[in-house]
């Protein structure tokens, strides 16, 4: 078993209205960042867990996303190995 750190990124599905992103975009436009096409807001979860391998950790995280962390109707998720996770192996 080794300690593995993962970064899970959860974002609203493409095409889904993201009112928070829209509000931020209009704030940025007020600051004259006028070339912005779109802002979308999601969340990042940093998860540290013990697993047999990196693949095992990713499999566990995928299951967590499917069962709780992401809503399959409205959100997509992306799981990445967090930097310096390898060092702890």
């Amino acid at each position: 078993m080794s300690r593995i750190r993962l970064e899970i990124r959860i974002v609203p599905r493409p095409g889904l209205l993201d009112p928070e992103g829209k509000a931020i975009q209009s704030g940025l436009q007020s600051l004259n960042y006028t070339d912005i096409h779109e802002v979308r807001v999601g969340k990042i979860l940093l998860i540290e867990l013990d697993a047999d391998s990196t693949q095992d950790a990713i499999n566990q995280a995928t299951s967590m996303c499917q069962r709780l962390l992401a809503n399959p109707v409205t959100e997509d998720f992306l799981i990445k190995l967090h930097e310096d996770s390898e060092n702890s192996e």
């Binding site: 889904l16 209205l17 009112p19 928070e20 509000a23 809503n71 109707v73 409205t74």
Partner: peptide
């Protein structure tokens, strides 16, 4: 129940 409840569009 199907679907989801998202933040109000007005925020």
């Amino acid at each position: 129940l199907p679907g989801a409840l998202l933040p109000n569009t007005s925020l």
